[in-house]
Design a protein around this nucleic acid. Sequence first.
DNA 1: AGCACGCCGACT
DNA 2: GTCGGCGTGCTC
Length: 724
Amino acid sequence: MGVTDSKRVRVLLPLPLAGAYDYVVPDDMPVEPGDFVIAPLGRTECVGVAWDGEPDHALAPERLKPLSETLDVPRMSAMQRRFLDWIASYYVQPPGAVLSMALPNAAFAAPVARTAYIAGAATAGKLTPQRRRVLAVAADGPPRTARDLADLAAVTPAVVTAMAKAGLLRPVALPVDLPFPLPEVDRNGHALSPDQRAAAAALCARVADAAFSVSLLDGVTGAGKTEVYFEAVAEAVRCGKQALVLLPEIALTAQWLDRFHARFGVAPAAWHSELGQAARRRTWHAVAGNRAPVVVGARSALLLPFADLGLIVVDEEHDQAFKQEDGVPYHARDMAVVRASLGRFPVVLSSATPSLETLVNVETGRYARVQLPQRHGAATLPEVAAIDLRSDPPPAGQWLSPVLVERINATLAAGEQAMLFLNRRGYAPLTLCKACGHRMQCPHCTSWLVEHRFQRRLQCHHCGYSAALPSECPSCHAERSLQPCGPGVERLAEEAAKLFPAARAMIVASDTIPGPAAAAAMLRQIAEREVDLVIGTQIVAKGHHFPMLTLVGVVDADLGLAGGDLRAAERTWQLLVQVAGRAGRAERPGRVLLQTYAPDHPVIAALLAGDRDSFLRREQAARRENQMPPFGRLAAIIVSGRDGDLVATTARALARAAPQAPGVHVLGPAPAPLAMLRGRHRHRLLLKTDRSANVAALLRAWLGEQRVPGTVRVHVDVDPYSFL
DNA sequence: AGCACGCCGACT
DNA sequence: GTCGGCGTGCTC
């Protein structure tokens, strides 16, 4: 290297580029791997991270640009860099795409200076009643923003700003990026049962070991698993480590936060999609600067730049929401285990219905099991019974069997709550013309449009397309011939309103919940008995505690079983156990009724018998037999584009170049079940290998060679959960 | 992700 | 005749 050569550094940019880019390091700007830098890119600039590895000296010097500056942010640890590289490599994704999930734009946005006011020195002669009220509010208490002051004093913000101008109020800058308070680990939480104490002790011992381990916290719904893993969190905090709790659905966690507050006296740092820019910035920097002892979040919280992480808890570990389907497809539960292994600390996986993957790892001794065999306190598990729809069908055009209607009436008469569960949003999943048979279909997708009667619209649940409900058939133009087919929760609510006119019903579905505040309000209304009948989709299955709920009616227990998805039985079983678990969580015993046409189906039979083990053994045997996960490995390759013929040709060309090795099979191509999505034709290939194969290496060798037309996209999904 | 370049419909 | 639609390709 000559004296004229400048120093080069590799910089990973948060973009889906093939790899890191090389930059010139200015002489007066020391840069080390992990440093956050601003790099010129095209005619703009972007935040990146100085990465590991050798710059490409074959690249002509005149093609390199100098870095603009380094940012005053704690360096990204070598561990975090290895972790992001690991994810990119395992899932066969561009490393920059993985980095982009760890670098939210908000983290580097300029902090918004917020001004607060306290009582000022000036004592103007004449005070209006409004101004007097503002001064009274400002007199004691912390500095407050103009808006808060105005709200508390019941005046408009204009009054406050005018007072500040007159010197009656003094502005003070609010500190940005406050640290999060330390949880009070030794505060008395609510009393643990002997079983809970034993389980907590086992988990705490793992935390104190400060070595890699995975423990399954396995306990029935309502056993008090949350309070048990809180003790592991407390232990991590005692050891001076950060703890992360991953939850599948952050939208509905007001109850979880209440429980956390009851145990620790403070709120944890939260990380989820509803967070505003300021909160996002604060949490990201607090996590990086070791000023956030406990973080609770959705799957993307796993990618936060923890300074000193010592424990991850994955609550409801079986939940498929941990698998990200769009962008970089990754499974947060699996990557939590990887993160813990790299960082040499324990993971706790918690569930009443553990995934088959996790149970197999327990059986082979890779994971430890900590059990909570009983419900907490006086609560008992609900009694589960089937309603055979072949012998007890609902009247034509209705969906509730007379047997279920009778039980709901009895429950309501006893002053208790009931829940109807149907995993279908909207009014009806299909609308057809009774004159010509035309079915209302999405113009961009291979899917039916779902009627949403409250909005008087038809909606595509795959692409978001929405159109007003037409008054005539678009095909034969017959008037008033369009007929809804099948039930959704809205239609169920209509039926319930006729059958139980006195009952206060509430629909709980993802599209009836505008945000976390509304979710919290709905849950509070249910918990406080302002609702008699809850009609919900899967969103009600998740972890909520409704003390007065004693009856759960599953309207269509067979719904998830069709379709031939490898996890259909497992998923249906998990969902229905979780729904059933909402019943009888306090003193009053619960009852669950499953409406089914197939009471002898293994899933239904297992639910009726409460026999988890024999169901899972059977399921496990079937997977082993077919070399399906976790006994074999899968990767899906989705080829998509606007030109259907070109997509098909490309998919066939990929299949012809498929790797040939013992234990490696490529299935397809075949049109995907969702053959068209957002106007793009889709073909699928499936790579299926035995357990020992290196799927990522096979995929890189195979797909790296292929030339694909620019208009065609090839999407790789390692360990797929969705087969659409 | 931005931001430019590049070919086909409704306007001054 | 252009203005501009977004589809496609590039950024060290």
